[in-house]
Amino acid sequence: MITFNYYGHACFMLDTGHEKLLFDPFLSFNKQAKLKPSDVICDYMFVSHAHEDHFSDALKIAEINHPMLVAIPEIINLFPAGYDNVHGMNLGGSAHFSFGTVTMVPALHSAGVAGGVACGFVIHFNDDTVVYYSGDTALFSDMKLIGEKQKIHYSILPIGDNFTMGIEDAAKAAQMLKTSYVIPIHYNTWPVIEQEPSNFKAYAESIARCFVKIVEPGHSLDLEYMHK
């Protein structure tokens, strides 16, 4: 069973029981986070883009854990030259790891690093659970194609608005993706992205054939799914 551990904002871990996959490490300046970078244990680290609220603790966690970094080449180049536990990818590419297969998909957002692009990840785990993390993104029509290529069980989507999709667009994304479940993230970190997740849940479940799972920072969710 895969467990989703939420650290607030857009930082979370997917734990297979054998491998720990950390996404977008932002803890030190994240008031929602209940742990410090020095507390994190992970085997893999995925970075969707290089904005501070997704990258700020990446170097520190890499130094402590030496996880495999999965990111675009421009982000990998931000790490010290001697850091060799890396796997560079780019949009549309897939790679196989011990836990399953990862496909890097587009995100419609700025990159935070010169020459780079923002991205999302579709993770097809060995137990056939499929998780889509959109990264920071606007709504875009190719989400429909992402949902057509694989049956997505869980989508992890931003709802905060201002910097990313808001409630209505994230609900439309869930509809286009044909996802079974949605976990909303990237909200209530600062006043400019304050949202009531129960409003997203009500609206998304009214227009899409999905269930919304609200996970509070510091809490976890076992990713069980049922075929619809």
Score class of each variant (00 low, 15 high):
E52M: 05
E196K: 12
T101K: 13
D53F: 03
T101L: 04
P67A: 05
I75Y: 01
N85P: 00
S220F: 02
P25H: 08
D136R: 01
A173G: 06
M226R: 10
A204M: 10
T16P: 14
V215F: 02
T189F: 00
M89D: 10
L157S: 04
N188Q: 04
G116V: 10
Y44V: 15
K178P: 13
F121W: 14
Q32S: 14
D84L: 06
I152V: 11
K172C: 12
M13S: 12
E148H: 02
F55E: 05
L35F: 04
P197S: 10
P191A: 10
E196G: 03
M45E: 13
R209F: 14
A208S: 15
C119G: 06
D142P: 10
A58F: 01
D128T: 15
L221T: 06
L78D: 05
Y44F: 15
E52V: 12
F79E: 08
L108D: 14
G17Y: 05
F200Y: 10
F55V: 03
T103E: 12
Q195K: 12
S28P: 14
D142Y: 14
D84I: 02
I76Y: 00
A58E: 05
V113A: 11
Y83M: 10
K144P: 00
F23K: 04
P67I: 09
N77Y: 10
G112L: 03
L59P: 04
M1I: 12
S141Y: 08
I41Q: 07
H18S: 15
T3N: 14
G116R: 05
I159T: 06
Q150K: 05
H51D: 08
P37N: 01
V117W: 03
G82P: 05
L59S: 09
F97I: 00
S110V: 07
E74T: 08
E224F: 12
S220Y: 01
V105C: 12
I207A: 03
V122G: 00
T16R: 05
T3E: 15
N5G: 02
C11F: 12
A107F: 05
H66M: 08
L223G: 03
K60C: 05
P217N: 05
N199D: 11
L69H: 06
L91V: 15
A170V: 04
D142H: 14
F55Q: 03
M226F: 02
G116T: 13
A171I: 13
M89F: 01
I156K: 06
R209A: 15
M143A: 06
H87V: 13
N162T: 11
K149W: 01
L108R: 11
P158F: 03
H66P: 00
K36T: 07
L21E: 06
Q195P: 02
V131C: 11
I159E: 04
N162H: 13
I183F: 01
A173C: 12
T103Y: 09
G82T: 07
F26K: 09
H109D: 08
M176R: 14
K36L: 07
Y187V: 01
F55M: 05
F163V: 00
F55C: 07
P217Y: 00
H96L: 03
P184V: 07
I156G: 04
I146C: 02
I185E: 00
S134I: 13
I185V: 14
I156C: 06
G17Q: 13
G218K: 05
V182K: 11
F97V: 00
E168T: 12
L14R: 09
G115E: 11
I207K: 11
M104T: 15
K151M: 03
E194A: 02
S110L: 08
H219R: 05
H54R: 02
F23N: 03
C119K: 08
A208G: 09
G120Q: 11
